[in-house]
Design a protein around this nucleic acid. Structure first.
Length: 748
DNA sequence: GACCTGCTGCGGAATG
């Protein structure tokens, strides 16, 4: 039964039947954020962001007052639109909310691509209660049922955005902002927005995201005491032995492998990876853990190794893979294993970083340096969530043994330094703010077409007001918007009637009428991998799959039986050997602050207490090499025919410097932490840098024009060269940042 | 040198 704490101000304001639900849960008291959220949400006058760690009770914090509000009202229509980035999360939340909903007689409707169409139809016949939906399904409602929406949303009271942080700064987030605005337009009134988020790097940006132009009015709810938990962090170092120059395993082609080679592949495992797998096996077996690995291919490699270790010791397998190319069934199996009675450890990519409830893990492992503080913090949050438990995270970092053949950049052990830098920043409670000043013209194209489909036709001026001036694309002025419409008109995506009404063109109709239209993001073509009629997952079509090929996938080894190019289906059967396939991928973007911290670490003498003995050795080695190369004095280093330029800044700045040097006729490539300039001495590179620093920062759009390939996002193909340049410049160039860095180099 | 996310309506066949 509730304690006296329960009779605090917040609890008293809740509806009696909501209070009864809380009693039934036998909660002793409401959590701090739940208490704080009641008054602002009940008022239904303002937007609210509730920010707290995973499993902090954010869902209840939002829905206790929301349900209370709904209890006092009657009428027809959807009352609450809950928007989630994940279908799995909608299923999870449906289970949780429908218990409360049943007691309160408020219907809850899950709504996404896997939900039966008939069920959605029925929900629309008598719209009511709470709809749990994805941005894509909401987009589909606008395109397919534009005329009905005014009735459906007329009584809308709240918009709830779950995992708000996952939307900020990305295409899908821009789409969401646009949809939120369009919902209010058809509803005919302002609808308070409630954002639920993990801890954010910049609450101001999040507030501005949820209500563009009026961020300062958003009410922020954060736990008063967020750092009570004990952290146990270890960074473990491993040496990658230098390859024997006379025997190269990699030269063996995949076609050469047959069953008899199975043992040989095992011995071909590099020593560092076997050592890491052996340690993971030793410390994780018998408990529930997550092993985060940066690449899907490595997830497969480690899942295979760990499973074989179990088999060798005649133990049941407790290690299961989980990543975005595995089928829903296999992923659910792994998630169920974590919730089950037997111990299980899941080897995963970012797939288990957020969202669905998998309970608390004994520990977290991270193989390879992570790319951001934000995601590291999320991963850490999956462990030690029970009161009094420490959160445990082990980092496993491999660095090459340094020989006379090792490149300068490798001998600086940047992977280890990145891991340490990220842990340091995590301990300082810093994390990356999202990047929010992108134009997102690809997503604007989608929204223009969708708006025309919704209304059947719209005037150009009106569509600019809706989408840009008062909508989500505030950075797009009227002139730019008209340019964009001209591009679309020129390609028959849209046309204009004599009365000035914009309509869909033939090509636009075709685009909008295909279901692939509803996503704002790009997706690659893939093969489906099938065994005995069961889908295991997918592989990108770039990967050459041929009959007879051996493959490691979904934690097991397979032989390819047949490849159906037409249907894009690959049939496989179990085998005793296999190789890890390559999955397609892009590069990520590391923040300035992480590289600055790495630079500081090279210069410093401090030895962090969380390093093991080998990691300490590697750190000392990296510092010795850093000073041996004179990198404290100059970031330029001669290396044979090349000059290396070390940039202790984020990837946005490095990319900008690269494009600038290329534009001046230099041949430039890049490594993790250095630009590699071919056939140029440091003196020549320095002259070029001086020339750049002598003038004010270059115009990013002019700079973008020097680049060949700028089509990156889904509808970029419809942009003119001029718009492509503007779009690229807004997303991938930081000219002031680059200018500052270069100025520092030439003056220092 | 990454990772992740998502999707309608219809026509026709098979089944209860």
């Amino acid at each position: 039964m509730p304690s006296s704490n329960q009779t605090s101000s917040g609890f008293d304001q809740l509806h009696e039947r909501v209070q009864r639900w809380i009693w039934q849960q036998q909660w002793m008291e409401l959590r701090d954020i739940q208490e704080q959220a009641i008054a602002p949400i009940l008022s239904a006058q303002r937007d609210v962001i509730i920010s707290a760690a995973t499993a902090g009770g954010k869902t209840e914090a939002a829905f206790l007052p929301i349900f209370s509000k709904l209890m006092d009202e009657t009428g027809s229509g959807i009352r609450v639109l809950y928007i989630s980035p994940l279908k799995a999360l909608i299923n999870d939340q449906y289970r949780r909310l429908s218990q409360m909903g049943e007691l309160l007689e408020i219907p809850i409707h899950p709504w996404h691509g896997d939900i039966d169409a008939g069920r959605k139809q029925r929900a629309l016949r008598h719209p009511s209660g709470v709809v749990l939906i994805t941005p894509e399904s909401l987009e589909a409602l606008f395109v397919r049922r534009g005329y009905e929406l005014a009735g459906i949303f007329q009584a809308l009271r709240y918009l709830v955005i779950d995992e708000l942080h996952s939307f900020i700064g990305v295409e899908r987030g821009k789409q969401l902002q646009s949809l939120m605005h369009r919902v209010e337009q058809v509803a005919g009134h302002c609808v308070p927005r409630i954002g639920l988020s993990a801890t954010l790097g910049d609450m101001g940006l999040a507030a501005e995201f949820i209500r563009p132009g009026k961020g300062e009015k958003v009410w922020l709810v954060q736990p008063e005491d967020d750092d009570g938990q004990e952290l146990k962090i270890q960074v473990r170092g491993y040496r990658i032995l230098a390859p024997d120059l006379f025997e190269d395993e990699d030269e063996k082609s995949e076609a050469d492998i047959d069953e008899a080679d199975a043992n040989e592949i095992k011995t071909a495992d590099s020593k560092d990876k076997s050592d890491i797998a052996a340690h993971l096996f030793k410390v994780l077996r018998g408990t529930n853990n997550l092993i985060f690995i940066n690449r899907r291919a490595d997830v497969e490699a480690y899942a295979d190794r760990l499973r074989r270790l179990c088999e060798q010791q005649r133990l049941p397998n407790e290690f299961l893979p989980h990543h975005g190319s595995l089928s829903k069934d296999l992923r659910e199996e792994a998630e169920q294993a974590l919730k089950g009675d037997r111990p299980a450890t899941v080897v995963c990519t970012t797939t288990l970083e957020m969202g669905i409830d998998i309970g608390s893990m004994t520990s977290i492992a991270q193989v390879g340096a992570p790319f951001s503080v934000t995601s590291t913090r999320q991963r850490l949050g999956r462990s030690g969530r029970r009161e009094g438990d420490a959160a445990i995270m082990r980092f496993y970092i491999s660095e090459p043994e340094v020989t006379p053949y090792t490149s300068p950049q490798d001998s600086l052990h940047p992977e280890l330094m990145q891991a340490i830098a990220i842990v340091n920043l995590l301990l300082k409670r810093w994390c990356e703010p999202p990047v929010v000043n992108k134009l997102h013209l690809s997503t604007l194209i989608q929204q223009v077409l969708s708006l025309i489909a919704e209304r059947g036709g719209i005037r150009a001026k009106q569509s600019w007001e809706m989408l840009c001036q008062k909508g989500a694309f505030t950075a797009v002025d009227q002139a730019l918007f008209i340019q964009l419409l001209r591009c679309l008109g020129g390609q028959d995506l849209i046309q204009q009637t004599q009365e000035g009404l914009l309509l869909l063109g033939l090509k636009g109709e075709r685009l909008v009428n295909h279901y692939s239209f509803f996503t704002a993001f790009q997706t690659p073509e893939e093969y489906r991998i099938v065994t005995h009629g069961k889908t295991l997952g997918t592989l990108p079509v770039e990967y050459p799959l041929t009959e007879g090929l051996y493959l490691i996938f979904a934690g097991y080894r397979w032989r390819v039986l047949a490849v159906d190019q037409e249907r894009r289906v690959v049939d496989v059967e179990r085998a005793a050997t296999g190789r890890v396939p390559s999955f397609s991928g892009n590069r990520g973007w590391i923040h300035d602050r992480i590289r600055e911290e790495m630079y500081r670490l090279y210069l410093s003498k401090e030895i962090p207490i969380f390093l093991d003995a080998i990691a300490c050795d590697l750190l000392n080695e990296a510092r010795t090499n850093f000073s041996r190369y004179g990198l404290a004095d100059s970031p330029l280093l001669s290396n044979g025919q090349q000059t290396l330029l070390f940039c202790w800044k984020g990837d946005l700045v490095i990319n900008t410097v690269l494009v600038q040097l290329q534009a001046r006729g230099l041949s430039v490539g890049r490594d993790a932490i250095a630009l590699i300039i071919e056939d140029a001495a440091p003196a020549k590179v320095l002259r070029e840098l001086r020339a750049i620093a002598a003038k004010p920062p270059v115009n990013p759009v002019t700079l973008a024009a020097t680049l060949q390939n700028k089509m990156i996002e889904k509808y970029d193909q419809f942009l003119s060269e001029e718009l492509l340049c503007q779009n690229y410049a807004s997303s991938y160039l930081d000219t002031p940042g680059a200018w500052n860095m270069i100025s520092e180099i030439v003056s220092g």
